[in-house]
Simulated scan of single mutants.
Amino acid sequence: MKTALKQTGAPEESDQPVAQTKDKVWFGGYLLFLIALGGLYYLVSLRFLGLSEGAVVWVLRLSRGAFILTLILGVAKASDVYLIGRIEDPVPRYNLRRIQKLIVALLMAFTAVTMWSNWYTTVVSLGLISLILGFALQTPITSFIGWIYIMVRAPYRVGDRIKIGSATGDVIDVSYLDTTLWEFGGYLSTDHPSGRIIRFPNSSVLNSAIYNYTWPVFPYVWNEIIFNVGYESDLDFVAKTMQEVAEEEVGEAMMERIRVYRELLAQTPVDALEVREHPSVLFRISSNTWLEAIVRYLVHPKEAGRVKTRLIKKLLAKLNAAPDRALFPKGNAR
């Protein structure tokens, strides 16, 4: 599976990210603030500022908590620039930043609470609060579990084209509680963006089938074009013409995709003998008085509409050039 994933596309060359000027400013600010907090803590602990005992305890807690919070933010910033920023694939980079923000928020919240109370008491209190909220917020918690499932099992990623329930679209955001799709198709008759946004709770992935049209190992789907032709047509000519036109449009790219597809199928019990490297033409009896001539080919789902439009134009031009061999419905017989 990993070998096939590497074959689906050549890696893009990119420079390893380095700290930009604004990042260096942030790092410098964090460092200066940490030094200032450390100095304040040291002076107060030695009673150099002449504060009362109650004020000393309060300032020590505050400076210690602020020091830890600043340290958390600094480490998060450094990991974002020097670790996560080095990942070339934008999808895992996006997911890791989501996870990092969640961890940072939890650590900061825990630190802020423990500034004013004993950490053991805080843990017990948080446990009781979590138990109460668990009953009151079952749906959001289930959606959060769905987000963890999406991160671990990756049924889809940002940029994938999916269908879940009646919703179909390109994933543009996966938050902690819901997923946002840029709808395609919808009320339109073609596979084009409708302009509408679909948002559904992440809990849906736990009890719904997910159709992923662009999973990274093999981001292609089968597509077909159907023409009605008469029984008196030269079927060999129609089949040859349709196959030649389709091969001219998608032939070389399709051969490479089929090679990867066969390697994937070889790892399963599925019989791969019927998987052809070239576009295929089939004939089927229609429910009316015509035959259906079908050309089937492999295409990237986000290119399906444009490829189909080009193929229809070329097919019609070739077939209409021989009206005595390719008989189409005419007039009121359409």
Rank of each mutant, 00 (worst) to 15 (best):
E53K: 10
V56I: 15
R64D: 14
A266Q: 09
D23I: 09
V307W: 00
T142P: 00
V221K: 01
I210W: 05
V158S: 02
L46K: 09
Y211M: 10
D89P: 07
D191F: 04
D271Q: 11
R334D: 06
T168E: 08
Q138N: 05
A55I: 12
N207E: 13
I164N: 02
R296F: 01
I294C: 04
R306H: 01
D160F: 08
L51I: 09
W222D: 06
I84A: 07
Y297T: 00
N95Y: 09
A322K: 05
N207H: 13
W222N: 01
I35G: 04
L206A: 13
S166Q: 03
L273A: 04
A76S: 10
E232S: 08
F33L: 15
W147Y: 15
E256Y: 01
W290E: 10
L43R: 05
A78Q: 12
T114E: 15
T70F: 08
W26H: 11
V123Y: 11
F218W: 00
A109K: 00
R334V: 14
I258C: 00
F48H: 07
K330R: 10
D80G: 09
D170W: 08
L60V: 14
K308V: 07
F110P: 12
I294H: 01
G165A: 09
I148Y: 05
R262N: 12
L265R: 01
R284K: 11
Q138F: 10
M242E: 03
G251F: 02
Y297A: 04
P11D: 06
Y42V: 14
L51K: 01
E249R: 01
Y41F: 09
D191E: 15
T111E: 14
L107V: 12
V307I: 15
E252Y: 00
S125V: 12
D23W: 06
D173P: 00
F110A: 15
K330L: 12
A239Q: 11
K163S: 13
L43N: 11
H300R: 02
F33K: 10
F283I: 12
D23N: 10
L69D: 12
R259N: 01
K330G: 09
W116R: 06
L206M: 15
M108A: 15
I225C: 04
D80A: 13
L32D: 01
N228D: 11
L128W: 08
P92E: 07
V25T: 11
S45D: 08
L102P: 03
P193H: 00
R97D: 13
F135A: 09
P301I: 04
N118G: 03
V104T: 14
N228E: 13
L133F: 10
A10Y: 06
Y41M: 12
E252L: 13
L133Q: 07
L133G: 03
L315Q: 01
K314T: 10
L106N: 02
V124L: 15
N202P: 07
L126Q: 03
Q16C: 09
E53H: 11
I145K: 08
I129D: 02
R199H: 09
N332C: 02
G65F: 11
K6Q: 03
L69G: 03
